[in-house]
């Protein structure tokens, strides 16, 4: 069972993502921001990271950079959730080394579809 780390400061969105992924048979670990995500990844590894961009303490781009700096996460798929209007963010995500982006709001089915595409 593939493990996915879902990072979002919004409880409702995190729950929604977690529910969607769990009911599609994934194992889901939740983190409330970038820093929390790094802390959670200290004790275990995951197969995919799905992160929001705008979060307190540590944002998504910084998280991506921090993860890419770790040997273990150099090729782990990392998807950034973004709002439609923020092209700049997509570019920043690219520069940071993210695998791809997913527009918010998204359909649960779309989420699962994208995740299946990138999962090794």
């Amino acid at each position: 069972m593939a493990a996915i780390l879902a990072v979002d400061d919004s409880t409702s969105l995190r729950q929604m993502v977690a529910f969607t992924l769990k009911s599609s048979g994934f194992e889901v670990i939740e983190a409330v921001d970038g820093q929390d995500a790094l802390d959670k990844l200290r004790d275990r590894s995951v197969d995919l990271v799905l992160t929001d961009q705008n979060m307190p303490r540590m944002d998504g781009i910084t998280l991506v950079k921090q993860l890419r700096a770790q040997a273990q996460y150099q090729s782990t798929p990392i998807l950034i959730l973004t709002t439609e209007s923020s092209d700049e963010m997509k570019q920043a995500g690219r520069a940071a080394g993210a695998t791809g982006w997913l527009v918010k709001p998204f359909d649960p089915r779309r989420l699962v579809e994208v995740i299946r595409k990138v999962l090794p």
């Binding site: 090729s75 798929p77 998807l79 997509k90 995500g93 690219r94 993210a98 695998t99 791809g100 982006w101 997913l102 527009v103 998204f106 359909d107 779309r110 994208v114 595409k117 990138v118 090794p120």
Partner: peptide, 11 residues
């Protein structure tokens, strides 16, 4: 509603 920056298959 989504896109990839890298070649997903290569990754």
């Amino acid at each position: 509603g989504y896109g990839f920056f890298v070649d997903v298959e290569a990754q």
